[in-house]
Design a protein around this nucleic acid. Structure first.
Length: 429
RNA sequence: GGAGGCGUCGCCUAGCCCGGUUUAUGGCGCCCGCCUGCUAAGCGGGUUUGGGUUAAUCCCCAUCGCGAGUUCAAAUCUCGCCGCCUCCGCCA
């Protein structure tokens, strides 16, 4: 969440910044008023509480000196004030809770470099690779679900039989391709990122820390019996690894990579991009994550985007980098770059990575701080996350891009070590 | 799932039975100062983290795993939960 002090000290700039994200300025004004009221209520409560405590101390002193009558009198007075304290306390807590609930629903402030805009159409294409568009043959113009079923790689029907639609089931070479991609990705980040295998089901608090709750409850799978949530991305558990902790600045940046399944209900996307692997409820993804100081964050953002891009280049997939406009970013982000690969069979740009700098927005929700080497009080860390990469759509792009006239599919050479050297999926015979 | 033990200010630790002179004891570490040819030792002071208030100091509130309760008053009593350890049961 954003720093409430910013709302107090510079209401105008918060109004402007959140306005760029489509937040009604009146909402910000309302927050400022609630905050002022909450502080006043807490002050009233604390004053009365101080009185109760002072009287209670005097009761003890009177008791010790044997003045029972005086002790009883003081206790009675304290009792009377206690009733007032209780009602003031309820009011104070309600007022504070109201501020927090409002704060939890407000998005992060967009960065100064973040492009303006009102929707996806205002995202800026920062760059493309390769410099000139790739050429595609007729053989590559076959959608992956056709290639997948023809070669026995993907069985959406049986997936649906087990779990309902949009739960893919990969077979044979198709399943091996996924495993190869995960190994390839983890190995290529091992130089700087510690590999982690976190749980895929998490507590409510863990989901709140990243910003996925309370606002986007409808998008997540929830196990009611145990009150656990299926993670929509490894960003969720990784953010909470140091929740509530104070790190040493010397340990920053702290870089992690994790391969997990990701679960998304896609509640708001009914009927959109439903074919094949374009949009699925469960997919595997390798995530990059970092805790950093504010100074380290910008360079880390660039390096994480560069890593994701490097993988796409290694895989030989055409892509473009989108600099997301203020209105299209996720709730926690202040700056986001999306990577989209061009997939010739479906003739679409597919989002396969989203790299975000969340400044201290998530750290404040999760209360993750670091102790500055130079001294001074602990400060909130900055968190960054990015996919490198999301496999379902990468799988689609690889299978479509690699398809040859004879129906076989050539896989990227970089995966060879992970495929026992078998980089060609033979044509159906 | 069952039985028992434990969770205190960076680390260790006292306090809990028997609620109130506790602003939570002491040690280690760390910071500042004194002393000193230098270092060590010694001496004095400081050292949880939030919030409120203030020009700043002061002061006030919260914080002894988390939450609720009892009480004029809770680290201390009661209940619930979480985590760790030991043993048992079950189990890949």
């Amino acid at each position: 969440m954003i720093d409430i002090r910013l709302v107090r000290d510079d209401l105008e700039s918060v109004r402007d910044a959140l306005g760029r994200r489509g937040v009604d300025p009146k909402e910000v004004d309302r927050l400022a008023a609630m905050d002022a009221e909450a502080r006043a209520a807490v002050g009233r409560r604390d004053d009365v509480r101080a009185e109760v405590k002072a009287l209670s101390r005097q009761v003890g002193e009177a008791r010790r000196s044997g003045d029972t009558a005086r002790a009883e009198d003081l206790a009675a007075r304290s009792r009377a004030i206690g009733d007032e304290e209780r009602s003031l306390n309820v009011a104070a807590e309600e007022a504070q809770d109201e501020v927090r609930q409002t704060l939890l629903l407000l998005p992060n402030l967009p960065g100064t470099d973040t492009p303006d805009g009102v929707g996806p159409e205002d995202n800026v294409v920062a760059r493309s690779w390769p410099d000139t568009d790739m050429e595609y043959t007729e053989a590559q113009r076959v959608p992956h679900w056709e290639v997948g079923s023809e070669l026995g790689l993907l069985d959406m029907e049986r997936g649906a039989k087990l779990s309902g639609s949009m739960f893919p089931l990969y077979r044979g070479f198709g399943a091996r391709l996924l495993r190869a991609l995960t190994s390839f990705a983890l190995d290529s980040h091992a130089d700087e990122f510690e590999e982690v295998r976190p749980p895929t089901m998490v507590l409510t608090e863990t989901m709140v820390s990243t910003g996925h709750l309370p606002k986007f409850e409808e998008d997540a799978y929830h196990l009611e019996r145990d009150d656990l949530w299926a993670i929509p991305t490894a960003e969720v558990p990784l953010t909470s690894m140091w929740r509530g902790d104070v790190l040493d600045e010397a340990d920053l940046p702290l870089r992690l990579t994790a391969a997990t399944a990701c679960f998304r209900r896609e509640a708001g996307a009914a009927g959109r991009d439903t074919r094949g692997l374009l949009r699925v409820h469960e997919f595997d993804k390798v995530e990059l994550f970092a805790y950093a100081t504010p100074d380290q964050a910008p360079a880390l953002l660039d390096s994480m985007v560069a890593r994701a891009e490097r993988m796409l280049q290694d895989l030989g997939l055409q892509y473009r980098v989108l600099d997301l406009c203020a209105a299209d970013m996720g709730i926690s982000a202040s700056r986001t770059f999306d990577l989209e690969v061009y997939s010739p069979g479906v003739d679409m740009w597919l989002e396969v990575s989203s790299v975000s700098w969340c400044t201290d927005y998530q750290a404040r929700r999760a209360n993750i701080r670091y102790r500055p080497t130079a001294g001074g009080p602990p400060a909130f860390v900055h968190t960054l996350n990015g996919s490198a990469l999301a496999w379902a759509r990468i799988w689609a792009a690889i299978v479509e891009t690699g398809r040859r006239a004879d129906g076989s599919v050539v896989l990227p050479e970089v995966l060879s070590p992970y495929l026992r050297g078998e980089t060609v999926i033979p044509a159906a015979g």
